[in-house]
Amino acid sequence: MGEKLYLYPVWLRVWHAFNAIFFLVLLVTGISMQYSSPDLIIVPFELAVASHNIAGIGIAIAYLFYLFFFIGSSNKQHYKIQLKGLVGRLLTQMRYYIFGVFKKEEAPFPTSENMKFNPLQQFTYVGIMFVIFPVLILTGIPLMFPELIVDNVFGIGGTLLTAILHAAAGFIASIFLVIHLYFATMGSTFTSNFKSIINGYHEVH
């Protein structure tokens, strides 16, 4: 067993848990509505609409909660991307995932107290948390009140445009979820990272 780092404070774990639940509800009901048909019913349409709305409000509140602590804590440091040499570092990390892991190489950017993410993680987390999430929330709110949306943007319905953006961002977020879950199995043991999100300690390889 390697050494343990306390990387995930309570507020982060609480947010993470709520976020995960809301996200799963949104994902399942979102797909169910997008592909609704009389023959195949994943979640009954009325229920899907109602739960998608509730979970949507929930995840937006959770996001504000996250931002509040994010700004007030040292958590910020993990999200500061250093542009210089970024591409090189991303490639190094990718190479490691594709070849290095199998040769039991040392991780090129090991997790530490000062930097819990490797460059690839950092890049995607910033994208998800500060691009995709805001897009989802900012398009989700008007979809809840479609009468507020401008009717027509360059010949395309305003609501349609908003909805496409929302669905596209949702798709990217769900891709992220799959990758996120998979990489979570690549901790020092298969399940160690899943324990971390509960007890807050990260096991170093």
Partner: peptide, 26 residues
Amino acid sequence: LNEGYMIGANRNTTLNVVSIVLFGLL
């Protein structure tokens, strides 16, 4: 359907195919 948007009825086939392919590759 461009005038409005009806959940479940507006489906862009291109986007559908692209998204399924991407997901499959992943």
